[in-house]
Design a protein around this nucleic acid. Sequence first.
DNA 1: AGCTAAACGAGACGGTACGTCACGTCTTGGA
DNA 2: TCCAAGACGTGACGTACCGTCTCGTTTAGCT
Lengths: 198, 198, 198, 198
Amino acid sequence: MPAVNSQPRRARSGNRRDEAARVAVLHAADDLLVEHGFGALTVEAIARRAGVAKQTIYRWWPSKVEILLDTLIEDTAKRLPVPTELPTASGIRAYLRDFADFLAADPAGKCLLTLLAEAQHDPGTAASFHERYLEPRRIAEIEMLTRATEAGEVSPVLGPEATMDALLGPIVYCALTGVAVPRDLVDTLAENILRPRA
Amino acid sequence: MPAVNSQPRRARSGNRRDEAARVAVLHAADDLLVEHGFGALTVEAIARRAGVAKQTIYRWWPSKVEILLDTLIEDTAKRLPVPTELPTASGIRAYLRDFADFLAADPAGKCLLTLLAEAQHDPGTAASFHERYLEPRRIAEIEMLTRATEAGEVSPVLGPEATMDALLGPIVYCALTGVAVPRDLVDTLAENILRPRA
Amino acid sequence: MPAVNSQPRRARSGNRRDEAARVAVLHAADDLLVEHGFGALTVEAIARRAGVAKQTIYRWWPSKVEILLDTLIEDTAKRLPVPTELPTASGIRAYLRDFADFLAADPAGKCLLTLLAEAQHDPGTAASFHERYLEPRRIAEIEMLTRATEAGEVSPVLGPEATMDALLGPIVYCALTGVAVPRDLVDTLAENILRPRA
Amino acid sequence: MPAVNSQPRRARSGNRRDEAARVAVLHAADDLLVEHGFGALTVEAIARRAGVAKQTIYRWWPSKVEILLDTLIEDTAKRLPVPTELPTASGIRAYLRDFADFLAADPAGKCLLTLLAEAQHDPGTAASFHERYLEPRRIAEIEMLTRATEAGEVSPVLGPEATMDALLGPIVYCALTGVAVPRDLVDTLAENILRPRA
DNA sequence: AGCTAAACGAGACGGTACGTCACGTCTTGGA
DNA sequence: TCCAAGACGTGACGTACCGTCTCGTTTAGCT
């Protein structure tokens, strides 16, 4: 679905990158992943669905996982921002709940799980995934946690890195094993690991 | 002639399954995974390395992930049994530490992570992995936890299912993201989630 | 269909060749050829259909074409004997007509065409086919022709070998190309090549 | 740079069919057939020998017999044209002699016999072989015969179809049975079947 | 009556080729 | 300069048969 407007033919780009082709590829990849699973996510299928030539994909993305990574980064920025300004205990708890919902329900959540999985199979994917997604988020999360601790909102029983692993780990593990995150799991974890003020 | 292996030639199996071929396939798959990664784990490569015909693999395993699953099940039974008899708080803590070491260092640990990853890509793999590995282990773990609780060894802050997710999740998440599990993470988690007697 | 009687189990043979298995194989091969074509004529399919183990086939026949050859030889002896006693011009003409009908209509005719075809593909088949089928028949045909010539029944315009090629060639060629042998072709050929007395 | 073949590397084709690959496949198939027989004529062997990918073969030919058919059609057009302009009795006789030599000596002759044989095994092959080779040639031959008859060059004892079967049949039959066509067979047949003027 | 030897059904085995799919690279020709 | 289109070499897929090889059973014929 490359066309984004009512014109029968997309305005072709000439010698600049075709933005319509770019978003068509991202959408096609995401749609294929959600609708038919990772097995159907081939470069040829993406090109077919996006109405784009295969070469156009190879020109701009080194592999199909980078497409997913682009999608994930854009979607996460919109739907799951890390709260960094004046974080409170309840703000952090809300963030954890949002994260659980994101993994369980959002199409981009499937995208994250897929990338985490593919990173186990391929070192290159792992490197990209860490560098472009995990590390930046982790830095923001650590900052969130540090500020909250300094403000006396929370007093975690572990260092910031380990605290984030202790909080996110169970949520991710439940998502990976197809288990719905229990309602009280997040709250009890926050209570016992973060030790909020109230 | 009491000796059964005086010839270097492998004893052929007749019309019964060839045990030597079976273990050769399991070893070949494990070796390929550890040495060259999941990308090199093709059925043809396994057959080549095991000195076995491709058809022999397809005769006994519906897919290559079932081979890994067989390997994982056999190896886990040997190297990471769930302690079910008279479990103590320190026994559970030791189990968690062993699990972290298993994921980090054992070849079969890579196998587990690979299966967990592949389960994200393919529903069939997910079903097999749950049915043949995760569920049986989870049942044993729940029993371990229940007995320890009844014996007063521990008094967990969550139900048994959620407790196991809270304990195993961070370990798995660290392994998946390539982070070494911090020394104090497991112990502090056990302290705050399980609340042992002592 | 190995069983030839009402007993649920065929009487097993002990340490002598099992005649029931032999004819079951011949029939299965012929049936498969006629019903599903040469492509379906695999050793495994023959064994399956005959209710016989593959090894039993390999024990007695070096290849599947030898099975067809056995069938052809038995059937030809019954249904298309070469008239050698006191041959007449009309006897030879009748033989040619029978041969045309045999190729067109008899299951064993398909068998002959198949063997002639397979002989083009494989020298071993060609050797067996010549030695066991073509040569013996040719010798009998030449004798038939020679006797008829000596008796003054016919006075062929070519030597006996070439005469047989001139008479049989068109019939075989029509069968190979799927053309029905025209009614007058055989008769006119006989008239102009054999030059019968009357 | 006017030269197109200054590099040893073959010029790649872009998005048009690669003519070099096409002829390489035809030659490889013919060579394999002549050198090692039909048994060695596998698609994989053709691809290997032609230096071409298997998929390139499957992209353009539905089966290996179509490759042979292409070869045969091209070669026959060059080496064994049917004389259609002002055919004479001796012209027809020469055509028959050329046909016999073609079958006996020319590589493409083996190709024809192979196709005729394979047509016995597979109805699809038979259909293609008739439609693309036998029928067009037969039409040209019938026209040749009709013209010669109308010009009074010959007065055949049979209709044109049956006449061609009577003339070609013995030649093909000899070739199929590995018998060298006797020198006088063709001439005597022509004399007695065609009845030329002189 | 028991023993030996052969043929049997069953079917696992190491192989080869099949025809299909997707990969990533390349070239053409149009905008 | 970018793009759609698509042919190409590469290599793995899962399947079908090949011909060989045990297995354990059955039976004929000899001790």
